[in-house]
Design a protein around this nucleic acid. Sequence first.
RNA 1: UGGCCUAUGGUGUAAUUGGCAACACUACUGAUUUUGGUUCAGUCAUUCCAGGUUCGAGUCCUGGUAGGCCAACCA
Length: 561
Amino acid sequence: MTEKEKPLNFIEHIVEEDLLQGFPKSQLRFRFPPEPNGYLHIGHASSICLNFGLGIRYEAPVNLRFDDTNPIKEEQEFVDAIKEDVTWLGFTWDQECFASDYFQKLYDWAVKLIKEGKAYVDSQPSEEIAKQKGTPTEAGVNSPYRDRTVGENLELFKKMKDGDFPEGSHVLRAKIDMASPNMLLRDPVMYRILHRAHHRTNTDWCIYPLYDWTHGESDYIEQVSHSLCTLEFAPHRELYDWFLDQVVTPENIRPKQREFARRNLSHTVVSKRKLLQLVEQGFVQGWDDPRMPTISGLRRKGCTPAALRNFADTIGIAKRENVVDVALLDFHMREDLNKMAPRVMAVLDPVKLTITNYEEGKEEWLQAENNPEDPEAGFREIPFSRELFIERDDFRESANRKFFRLKLGGEVRLKNAYIIKAEEVRKDPDGNIIEILCTYDPKSKSGSGTPESLRKVKGTLHWVSSGHAIDAEVRLYDRLFSDATPDQHQGRNFTEFINPDSLKVVTGKLEPGLAGAEPGSRYQFQRLGYFCVDRESKPNHLVFNRTVTLRDTWSKLEDKA
RNA sequence: UGGCCUAUGGUGUAAUUGGCAACACUACUGAUUUUGGUUCAGUCAUUCCAGGUUCGAGUCCUGGUAGGCCAACCA
């Protein structure tokens, strides 16, 4: 909020220019206008950060407005979910508004348009109206009802409102220009008949205003100064302005629509239709599945609000098409989590390791730093004993010198504990390693200050004491799609690119202090990644979700070899 | 035979509005490190093309090219 040096995006340049032209800063007002017909996703997060970010920068109010003009799709459940998501992101709206609160006002204005000869009731079926629209290169033709008298229009519109007609029998249209090069100006429909209950107005209305007629007028009612939307609405601007022309008075603020490009994220899809398909066809387990790009999914995965905000801030806002690399989101998650997540040890693919020269039955509680990035985080105690688990990946019978981990005859440090040396392996009849036998250097205890403890060994491994470790279900999430742009391949369905390994569930061995971990809390499993406790987690059955792995230069080296 | 929008490293955004193409991520080097994490240092660009104006062009002009959006009683 204090970064004055950050360059302005093009929207901010527009605002600055308006201010320069004398627009009073105190009259600046923005809005975030979702339709409550589904869950918010990362694209919305960008828009939220844009609008609320503008509010913060210019100390201007930002309304949360629900664009609820289509009772067929909208539900209270979504209103609640959207409010939760915006709040979670850390923003506070000024007024909570609903387009449905303006139904009467909109109706009155429609009557005014009819009286001025600028709107008429059309009584043709929608297919007929569509046919008369023409094409982008050919003019449309006028409706036979276009010249109805004002009196007739007034009467019909009233009857539409009173419920005298069935759905589809009549619509109210603006009388603009059937030959306009902009298709949207060819007498756009303003109202349709819908005998449907609305989640807020119930059955008070049976005619519902359409987007174009509603949006600009709502901005005007709320005195929004800058109305920002995505690029596909650019052609709507001319109509937005036409509708505004009909009602604006000079003493009020005239809202200004400007368009920006929606942000696309690699390795995912964001269209509501496609997300719905993922849910309905069982590719994921719900709208808040941690693999979903929904805000609720990201939250459940363990993403932090700050990470999402910083991400939105970094990618900025512009007008060109884009596909933002999801690696950037990963970066911001790691950046935030690195500062705040307590370190713990967890072994997700355990193999038994026995320290043969460590006294049987003995246990030691060792000091472990909670977060090297945060000295305030302090220390905790973890149990050490003769029998441990380490990661199967961390041992090889033999390996070259690039392999910093444990190999036969080699030494390695156990994090916060001792230096050990692998002496021998035991295998099952199939040749699988079932136990690694080691010896330890009793004088090498971490933090003891002895010369032995100060010895440099190349590798440090995480571990847990097998007798003390607790089990947890650990859900290892990976990108949902193996392709960067799954929905941009001609003739191929995006579901073909689903990553079959997007979820792996394992039983991990965790240090015992994690027994009481609360849902939502986040940790770094050292050397593995960031994890958070899932909302389904119970004290007798812990569940962790992997938020993001640590950066891993070793696996890259391995891949190259 | 239309209207509108866009074009800057692998990715996303900048460029005091005509003055040394910058920042972040990724990738790759190297240093540090009791996390192969973190941190630090470094490497990676004929600004879509072709002309033009100018002492000077990513920015202005002309002409191309490529991509996106628009014909729902959805938003």
